[in-house]
Amino acid sequence: MVKITFVEADGVSYDIKAPEGWSLMEAAFHNGVEGIEAECGGACNCATCHVYIDERYLDKLPPIGSTEDEMLECTAAERRANSRLSCQIELTAELDGIVVDLPETQI
């Protein structure tokens, strides 16, 4: 299991454990983290699972794919250097302890 902390824009945080192989979005979604909409259920179709990734973990993530890159250009909240779509990040042991900040809005 991978330990993840999601921090909503208003400071509310969730400590969650999710299995390796799941996506970061699924971990949030199953546990009802509010700042993730994930309307398309993880198919990189809606850009409503936008997150800001803990800088210490950025280089442990898979590179941004072309679809994700285009979708990130269309997020509701501003795209930053550490922006990712959480449905495109598969949980691995290396990500244990990751802190993920959620934007103010997804829609």
Binding site: E26, F29, H30, N31, G32, C40, A43
Partner: peptide, 28 residues
Amino acid sequence: PPLSKQFLKGEWDQSRLIQRNAEFYVKH
């Protein structure tokens, strides 16, 4: 949606289809 995609292909098991876990319903 994943029923005709990831689930049918065998990429996902049933637990990944669940929308929100059981605790969510209790909590809310």
